Amino acid sequence: MLIEAVCGDLTREHVDAIVNAANSSLLGGGGVDGAIHVAAGPALLAECRELRRTTLPDGLPTGDAVATGAGDLPARWVIHTVGPDRHRGQTDPGLLASCFARSLDVAAALGACSVAFPAVSAGVYGWAVDDVAQIAVDTVRSWAEQHPVDASGREHAVTLVRFVLFSETALEAFRSALTRGSGGSTPS
């Protein structure tokens, strides 16, 4: 699996799936969540409302992930995940790691080969970007080791993970995490 980090706009990524740092309501919010909902248009909100009406009446739990279509975005799917909020006492790194692992599980089940992530929980949820970067990179690497791509390039294999970051500071944190124990991953 190729793992890379870039500074950019997640809503413009031409990948199979982008990951939304959502809130549990799935009905939009600020930051990455708000930007994705605006760029995707009303179809995304309609799908999220249907999820709430049917399978997730209490909202999406922290650390879990669920997919919808991507509306007007260049990606095919949006994978919504709810990161832990340090301001609410959610300081377990396992919850944050679960956001990345569960998102990759969902992506693989969809047949997505390329996935773009934001720095989940590094914004208003109060996690230090260096911590998010290390947890994210370690989790993606671990997930890749547990889901190797064979020579035939299985059709349900995630082969590219791109961290799309909002600032040079975040980009540097992710590049630094990628450099540590780079075991086949390539920072870009």
Rank of each mutant, 00 (worst) to 15 (best):
L2N: 15
I3T: 03
I3K: 04
E4N: 08
A5K: 05
V6L: 15
C7V: 11
G8E: 12
L10M: 10
E13A: 14
D16P: 00
A22H: 07
N23Y: 07
S24R: 14
S24K: 10
L26I: 11
L26A: 15
A35M: 06
A39Y: 12
A39M: 07
G41I: 10
L44R: 12
E47V: 11
C48M: 01
R49D: 14
E50T: 00
E50Q: 05
L51D: 02
R53A: 09
T54C: 11
L56I: 01
G59F: 01
G59H: 04
T62D: 13
V66L: 15
V66C: 09
D72L: 12
D72A: 12
A75T: 06
W77G: 00
W77Q: 00
V78K: 11
I79K: 11
G89N: 15
T91E: 10
P93A: 15
G94C: 09
A97T: 04
C99S: 03
A101N: 08
A101G: 03
S103Y: 03
L104R: 00
D105K: 08
D105P: 06
V106H: 14
A108F: 04
L110Q: 14
S114R: 00
A116W: 13
F117W: 11
A119S: 09
S121A: 08
G123M: 03
G123S: 01
V124H: 15
V124D: 08
G126R: 05
W127L: 03
A128R: 09
A128C: 02
V129L: 00
V129Q: 07
V129N: 04
D130W: 07
D130L: 08
D131V: 04
A133H: 13
A133Y: 14
V137W: 05
T139Q: 03
S142Y: 05
A144I: 01
Q146T: 11
H147Y: 02
H147V: 06
P148M: 02
P148I: 05
S152L: 10
G153K: 07
T159C: 05
V161T: 15
F163G: 09
L165V: 12
L165D: 11
S167D: 13
A170K: 13
T179P: 00
T179A: 13
G181I: 06
T186E: 15
P187K: 11
